[in-house]
């Protein structure tokens, strides 16, 4: 074996060489993932909090379903969205298949259950602590949701990171709904899949290292912010 185990030269040539294309791929990856996780957060955080607090018939069933959906196989999610968005499918009119938006939808669907399930757990725990105080203030369960979400913010950052992890590592679903079109829907993970299939394993590995580094940076930043914040408002 003369190949480097960690192909530093490949990484360097990726970053310094004909970089426009590569930076575009990184930018698209971040854009798709961050948009999907943000939207999933905007929907999932209130939904998870609602599921934690509001009692309604069938609640337990929904909780079990959401927990199950956390392990939803990405390929199945991708296929379902593909069938929905295809020109022959019910949402074909929108012309979203093989676009970044389709990839965002796929990741949104994959990330949402994680955010809902983890948020529900966090908020339920916090509610046991806050219930008396909030009830005494005359705030019912629904009205307490914003308070609980805000006060759980540092735990919820971890929840969002879990979602980000699932989204950024995902390849099966976005390959199906995005089509891995060069310069348009090609992301870090689909590039890695492509380079592997071309047999360019060092390049695939280099891309993987770059992806890992990016994920590391994002996680460190979020962890740092949440640590500093948690210290500021007292240990959680």
């Amino acid at each position: 074996m003369q190949q480097d185990a960690v192909p530093i030269s490949s990484i360097l040539s990726l970053l310094t060489g004909d970089g426009g294309n590569f930076l575009g791929i990184i930018f698209l990856s971040l854009q798709v993932t961050i948009t999907a996780v943000t939207c999933a957060g905007l929907v999932g955080l209130p939904l998870g909090a609602g599921l934690a607090l509001v009692r309604f018939p069938g609640r337990t069933v929904i909780i079990v379903l959401v927990n199950t959906m956390m392990g939803f196989p990405p390929v199945v999610a991708g296929l379902a969205i593909f069938l929905l968005l295809s020109r022959s499918g019910p949402l074909g009119e929108l012309g979203l298949l093989f676009t970044p938006k389709a990839m965002m939808i796929a990741q949104f669907v994959l990330v949402l259950p994680i955010i809902v399930a983890l948020t529900r757990q966090t908020i339920e725990d916090l509610w046991t602590e806050y219930q008396d105080h909030m009830t005494s203030l005359g705030a019912g369960r629904l009205r307490s949701i914003p308070t609980l979400l805000w006060d759980a913010r540092f735990s919820l950052v971890t929840t969002l990171l879990a979602g980000l992890g699932r989204a950024s590592a995902e390849v099966g679903a976005i390959l199906i709904v995005g089509g891995n079109i060069a310069g348009f829907t090609r992301t870090m993970t689909t590039s890695i899949a492509l380079e592997t299939s071309k047999g360019d394993l060092p390049l695939a590995m280099a891309l993987g290292v770059v992806l890992m580094s990016l994920t590391l940076v994002i996680n460190s930043l979020a962890f740092g912010i949440s640590r500093v914040g948690a210290r500021f408002s007292g240990k959680s």
Binding site: Y130, T147, F154
Partner: peptide
């Protein structure tokens, strides 16, 4: 009401 173990919001 003030509770025995006061509830302190994380703020």
């Amino acid at each position: 009401m003030v509770f025995q173990k006061p509830v302190m919001l994380r703020r």
